[in-house]
Design a protein around this nucleic acid. Structure first.
Length: 414
RNA sequence: GUGCCUAUGGUGUAACGGUUAACACUGGAGCUUGUGGAGCUCUCGAUCAGGGUUCGAUUCCCUGUAGGCACCCCA
């Protein structure tokens, strides 16, 4: 006997069974509805990009491309990469048509991305990542809008203000701290790395590290709020948004950010993690042309959001998109059941039928197992009388309905 | 890349180093001849791989593999 294949999915990627896919779809639907309400439009692109797109962001990122991406050579000797993030693609698309797009531009996308790394809780090799960006504005109100949009989305997903906190930091402010302290580029890098790690090390170690690089702990305290951020936080307060705070340790790695940066943190004790983050970048299209195009935006991962919702019971119970299951009392009636299903479908109802190969009890079982809310039995009696009993599988209640009124019965029960 | 933990049917668990690896759920078949999504009967199905210790290994040891978690990194 030959060795059978494993039924496990490839390392770090997920199978989406109908219930999983239903959740993902619902999550995306909430995202789309909310973002389109506040003026964003959706774009998309291929998952494949030439590798060089991800290589040129800066010397520091060489390693990321070589070791943490899916890169291979195609049959035409081109080096290609499965996108590990969407921003370079976005920059490419915007730069490609910048003369005809019209700014400010509000775009969003929900791409799947791949990163070659060891999977762990909340971090997988394939993930979907909402990307929200505004191009063509230097206004701090664009930054504020992006932060407010992240806030609004968290609320739209069912989060309350105590469920998450948005920590806002400032690259320029920290650059100035480094400059005032007379730090060399290497020491500045060390300083930023220290800031990034602050929440993972003790306060004593953090402050000792600061003194080591030559920065006073006082200037990186949460009390030393940069003026523009203080004003922004105050304006959010006035608008009734109270969980946005200044945090000097938010610097977002060594990425392309040049201005305000922020991260959305889950406050649940068992789920203390960033669910997303972003900030301002003013030089992104520099890869493609000479005229700088400012932008600001953020990204959120599907798995981090799912965990956020899961620990709070915000994930709704699955119900099949199929509204009605048509059971038949004998195989010979399958065609009649098809006809009936067709009538209901024309009336806008989602209907699946059984082929009558198994007993009525088993057919009911299948409908219940598939979480289909309603059941209709097609038998000789019903076909003759034209009256069908509609069974609610959740409550067990039954209700007689005339054949021609079936579709109407369900039309208000979506 | 580093460290820690885990590995028994499809799923969740059980088995002091000692009979034929047990139980529940799920799946399949049947009975109850159209409301029985229940009940009853039957049934398919597992010790990750390779070494070692032992009279005897699911159990102890080693290696490998896989998975999980944390670190590194996090675009």
């Amino acid at each position: 006997m030959s060795k059978k294949l494993s039924t496990e999915p490839y390392k770090g990627v997920r199978d989406f069974y109908p219930e999983d896919q239903a959740f993902l779809n619902a999550l995306f639907k909430t995202m789309r509805t909310f973002l389109e309400k506040v003026g964003y439009v959706e774009y998309h692109a291929s998952i494949l990009e030439p590798s060089e797109l991800f290589k040129s962001k800066g010397a520091d990122n060489e390693e990321i491309i070589n070791e943490q991406s899916y890169t291979f050579v195609d049959r035409g000797e081109r080096e290609v990469t499965l996108r590990p993030e969407m921003t370079p693609t976005l920059a490419r698309m915007v730069a490609h048509k910048r003369r005809e797009l019209g700014f400010p531009l509000r775009w969003y996308s929900i791409p799947n991305c791949f990163r070659y790394e060891r999977p762990q809780r909340g971090r997988l090799r394939e993930f979907w990542q909402l990307n929200v960006d505004i191009f063509g504005s230097r206004s701090i109100y664009a930054d504020a809008e992006v932060i407010g949009t992240a806030y609004g989305l968290m609320r739209a997903l069912g989060g309350t203000e105590s469920d998450f906190v948005i920590k806002v930091g400032s690259r320029p402010a920290m650059n100035k701290v480094a400059e005032d302290a007379g730090l060399s580029p290497e020491t500045t890098k060390k300083f930023f790395g220290l800031l990034d790690r602050r929440d993972k090390i003790s306060k004593v170690d953090f402050e000792a590290g600061l003194r080591e690089v030559g920065v006073s702990p006082a200037v990186v305290s949460a009390d030393a709020v940069p003026e523009d951020i203080a004003k922004m936080i105050e304006e959010f307060r006035a608008a009734g948004v109270n969980n946005i705070v200044y945090d000097p340790a938010i610097v977002r790695g060594f990425a392309y950010y040049t201005g305000i940066v922020f991260e959305v943190f889950d406050t649940h004790p068992q789920n203390n993690r960033a669910v997303g983050g972003g900030g301002r970048y003013d030089n992104l299209t520099a890869l493609f042309d000479d005229e700088p195009l400012p932008g600001t935006g953020f990204a959120m991962g599907d798995e981090a959001l799912r965990l956020f919702m899961e620990v709070r019971g915000l994930i709704p119970e699955y119900v099949s998109p199929t509204q009605v299951y048509v059971a038949v009392t004998a195989p010979e009636l399958a065609l009649q059941a098809q006809t009936l299903a067709g009538e209901m479908r024309r009336g806008g109802v989602n209907v699946a039928i059984d082929f009558g190969e198994r007993k009525l009890g088993d057919q009911i079982k299948v409908a219940a197992k598939h979480k289909i809310p309603w059941l209709i039995v097609v038998g000789e009696n019903e076909l003759t009388s034209g009256e069908f009993k509609i069974k609610n599988l959740a409550s067990g209640a039954e209700e007689p309905v005339q054949r021609e009124k079936l579709a109407a019965f369900f039309s208000d029960k979506k």
